[in-house]
Design a protein around this nucleic acid. Sequence first.
RNA 1: CGGGGCGUGGCGCAGUCUGGUAGCGCAUCUGGUUUGGGACCAGAGGGUCGGAGGUUCAAAUCCUCUCGCCCCGACCA
Length: 568
Amino acid sequence: MRLSRYPVNTAKETPADAEVISHQLMLRAGLIRRLAAGIYTFLPMGLRAVRKVEKIIREEMDRAGAYEMLMPAVQPAELWQESARWEQYGPELLRFKDRHDREFVIGPTAEEVITDVARRELKSYRQLPVNFYQIQMKFRDEIRPRFGVMRGREFLMKDAYSFHADQESLAEGYAAMKTAYTRMFERMGLTFRAVRADTGSIGGSASEEFQVLADSGEDAIAVSDADDYAANLELAPTPVYDGKRPAATQSLATVPTPATKTIADVSKLLGVDATRCVKTLIVEGSDGGVVAMVIRGDHEMNAVKAQKVAGVASPLRMATAQRVLAGTGTEPGFLGPVGLKCRIVVDHAAAALADFVCGANARDAHLTGVNWGRDLPEPETADLRNVVAGDPSPSGQGKLAIRRGIEVGHIFQLGRKYSEAMQASVLDPAGKPLTPLMGCYGIGVTRVVAAAIEQNHDDKGIIWPDPIAPYTVLLVTLNHDRSEAVRNAADSLYAELGAAGIDVLYDDRDARPGVKFADAELLGIPHCVIIGDRGLAAGQLEYRHRRTGATGELPVNGLLDALRARLA
RNA sequence: CGGGGCGUGGCGCAGUCUGGUAGCGCAUCUGGUUUGGGACCAGAGGGUCGGAGGUUCAAAUCCUCUCGCCCCGACCA
């Protein structure tokens, strides 16, 4: 493509409403434009990157034996009523009526449609297993769309659905998808982890997220430094209390701590490390009472884990100050497990403490030298906290580090939730109806593009990984309009590279070098070849690698071969 | 939905407090000079100041209502 004729506008200034780097760069590089909140147009340059991602996805899905199809974006309400998600999904599901007053949704996902396809098309167990996929626009009316295309309302998604006669087959299909996903993201040149995830509202057994690691990611994940263990922070288990703790060396004492309500303040006032303090959080119980959660001072309570404790309300609700007073007789800020008048559940790490500090259940006072089993009963323990960096990995190998990630893919073993609700069945070998097990596998295509930029950029602009770059090679002329030699050489090189099947962008604009170089860096095309009078006289071209900044000379004759060696 | 903020040419902003000829930079167009890191000179086009109503001799500016957008939170296959 000749840049002089290419409909792309770059901007020096960062749009005011773009928060994250990928959003800023996509706007500045002329990849996308906002149409409404969370709804974006992909301009030609941006679409190129999307298509590259799609191509890799298609190749790997096809390799895994899946069949591409295309389902409607607009889906009738009846299907959603059948699966009961019409009621369950809430306002995130965009609903509307057609001219005949019939209700429809714009699909946020397609389990209902594919299950409808399956019950019509699949008749025999002999047709299983089978995996269908599509790449289609989805719409989710997010409460707060943000970060440009990374968390938009309308987005392009690859969704796949598999059908199986038994659990073993489902597990195989799931494993095949995991392999395919791993290949895809590797091919895209992204640094990612497959992360154990909460199955959430979708239900089902196994589930893993594919997270692109980036500091700006919305999800916190715990990764082992010694093996490939990775789990969503919400899910990573902490070590179970082993019944061992240091012997008590201090005696129980009440100390005055006026207006000292936070762990940080208590720790400072008493000169005791937060790791030897304990905080007591009061949550609503499922029986109308309250439950006390005791956590080490430096730890954070994990809502997902806490609400799984029997007798605790789910979803988790913190008790109000009045409820705390009514349920425990003490006000927040000075709560402690000693003599507390409600059920107490203690985190494993807090249970392992000796000589610790906690609230005295009296205004302006704390207890020091507290010991389980002596000053209060041995605790009921549970995993209540988030893992922290340095905790041992649940895999048994190494220690955990906390990283941030962008969820670009998610694979599920769904089970029979939809096939049962929508009565999809095939005949088994005995001629009896068999309800197939399902798996579903998603990839946020447009989000992958944003995540790739989030992970690959510098202060000058985008640094595309070769496989998903809109163009692979950028040809830049200097002194374009006045030097016939440059123009002729560039024109023929452009034709040569194009004929060789290389995606080449040709900056043939009559612009100053600074403008061209700045745009080259902003656009982030991986390989840049500069054609100027100076080098041309010596039969040389200048080469620059966007990622490494490495420069070098390439011969005019034999550019193609020299480039190919670098494209690898 | 709760809290905070912002709507002024395509983009970034000033002007609003204290009412009085709509301005600056970038971008765009024309002509000229320039040409290896975002040039310079001269000129040009482009704005119902988000919208509606009100106060006033006069409203971007004050008042009321409304719409949109951004940030934080809750939420999130």
